[in-house]
Nucleic acid binder design. Structure first.
Length: 448
RNA sequence: GUGAUUGUAGCUCAGCUGGUUAGAGCGCCGGAUUGUGGUUCCGGAGGUCGCGGGUUCGAACCCCGUCUUUCACCCCA
């Protein structure tokens, strides 16, 4: 059988894992500095925990897990004959791989509500799965690194999360534009236009502004069947420019819209203080597809790279109520590890040091010599120096080739003459220089 | 889900208009060279031409289906 990977998945080799760990270490430090604690949840959940949380499109992209028993007996003939995928799906599968980290987190909070102290701040770095078609920067298995707070309505949380984004991307050296909006502003616009019932279609159209332009957005709205006078009015708004100032006049008659603007102003004025390298911009076209967002929403684009968003998030006032915990508002952000990786790679921003540390390989000259060499290896390892013995008494050429390929910088030669010696020949493989060294000298040399 | 695109040795790729036994470079294994590598030279192994069907005297090449790759749309990190 020919080995191959499942669609949209990847293997990670040593250097890639090291680079990924570098990113995760930065994120972990920034999370923990601000009081977020780590949790983990299972890779799969009950199907009903996940369905209906991500919108229609999202439901389609959930990876379902086939029931392990005799699922065929649970299907009645009528449903099978109708080929109704939705009903059949629930019969055939009752578990699913997690689609994001937010919904499992909401489930976690409700289930552990008596053990945790609110406001509860957690971070989580785990893979998620989506049954999407792969393309640039899009995989079917990828990592999200999330920070969320639940149990506080305070807008200071939003401010902190913006600073968290800024601090992380600044440290990674990745120029980032943090776009923010507020769902209540969008809702207010729909309300004033009298198209609240078509809110989703409205946001989908608006979201395309930078891609298709103003006329494209209006065409899209027409295609979605929105009220034509509303579309015309919105066209005038677009022409005049939808700044925060303009919106405060336009949304006078919407209570929700006014609240949204208030919130947005608070977040913006407080978040610009102490911002490092990232740009923070209000973007009224930012909508986000996940339908559990209710207030502030975030999205981060990396500067200088053509890549989808490298992060996103927002406030969800009521996500836990689906699981039975009311009046508990949460807000959180997500870092897209895989896309951040691609950006850092493309812009050549990984530091040299992520590659493996220095180490030393002991050549194997035979049974007795190997035993002596292994004694050296043990002493070095005990002193925190990466050392290993070549396991077989192979030809030296082969042992050197191995060291080269593994990029081991030093090789030690414990031959018959050195078996009892206090100092042994150590060769620098890059320069070819060879010198006799004691244990202390080797420790100093390899540690650099 | 829609529309394109890709698949030949471990890797990167040639392979003419359909015509004998499908090639190269790199890598791998062995030797020149039994305790000092990277160079060089010599030899060797390695291929169901993604898979299934069809057309043809004959298919890596043409047709259909399918899987896979990459890209765009939708949506998203």
């Amino acid at each position: 059988m020919k080995p191959s990977l499942a669609k949209g998945t990847r293997d990670f080799s040593a250097i890639e894992v090291q680079k990924r760990q570098y990113i995760m270490n930065v994120l972990r430090e920034e999370f923990e500095l601000r009081g977020y604690d780590p949790i983990e949840t299972p890779s799969f959940e009950n199907l009903e925990t996940l369905t209906g949380k991500y919108g229609e499109e999202g439901d389609r992209l959930i990876f379902k897990i086939l029931r392990s028993g005799d699922f065929t007996s649970k299907i009645d003939e009528g449903a099978w004959a109708n080929k109704d995928a939705k009903t059949l799906g629930a019969k055939v599968a009752d578990k699913a791989l997690r689609y994001d980290l937010t919904v499992p987190f909401a489930r976690y909070v409700v289930q552990h509500q008596n053990e945790i102290a609110f406001p509860f701040k957690r971070y989580q770095m785990q893979p998620v799965w989506r049954a999407d078609r792969p393309q640039k920067g899009r995989f079917r298995e990828f990592y999200q690194c999330d920070a969320d707070v639940v149990g506080s309505d305070s807008l200071w949380q939003e401010v902190e999360l913006i600073h968290l984004y800024d601090a992380a991307f600044t440290r990674l050296g990745l120029g980032a534009t943090i776009k923010v909006n507020n769902r209540k502003i969008l809702a207010g616009m729909a309300e004033v236009l009298g198209i609240s019932d078509d809110f989703v279609a409205f946001t989908v159209a608006i979201d395309k502004l930078d891609k298709v332009g103003a006329s494209g957005v209006l065409d899209e709205m027409t295609k979605q069947g929105l009220n034509s006078t509303a579309i015309a009015t919105f066209g005038q708004w677009l022409e005049a420019g939808l700044t925060l100032e303009a919106l405060s006049a336009l949304l006078q008659d919407s209570e929700e819209g006014k609240i949204g603007l208030e919130e947005m102003n608070f977040v913006l004025t407080n978040a610009v203080e102490g911002l490092q390298d990232s740009r923070l911009v209000f973007d009224f076209t930012l909508a986000r597809g996940l339908n559990y967002y209710t207030g502030t929403i975030f999205e981060v684009a990396a500067d200088g790279v053509a890549m989808g968003s490298v992060g996103g998030g927002g406030r969800y006032a009521d996500l836990t109520s689906i699981f039975g915990l009311k009046n508990t508002s949460g807000v959180g952000i997500s870092f897209g590890l895989d896309r951040i990786y691609l950006c850092l790679e493309e812009l050549d921003l990984f530091p040299e040091a992520v590659a493996g540390k220095a180490s030393i390989l002991f050549a194997n000259f035979g049974e007795a010599e190997a035993a002596s060499a292994y004694g050296w290896v043990q002493k070095l390892v005990a002193n925190g120096v990466r050392a290993e013995l070549y396991p077989d008494a192979a030809k030296l050429k082969k042992q050197f080739d191995f060291a080269d390929k593994k990029q081991v910088p030093y090789m030690a030669m414990v031959g018959t003459n050195e078996m009892a010696a206090d100092a042994i020949p150590v060769k620098n493989l890059a320069t070819g220089a060879q010198e006799s060294k004691t244990l202390e000298e080797i420790i100093a040399l390899v540690r650099g």
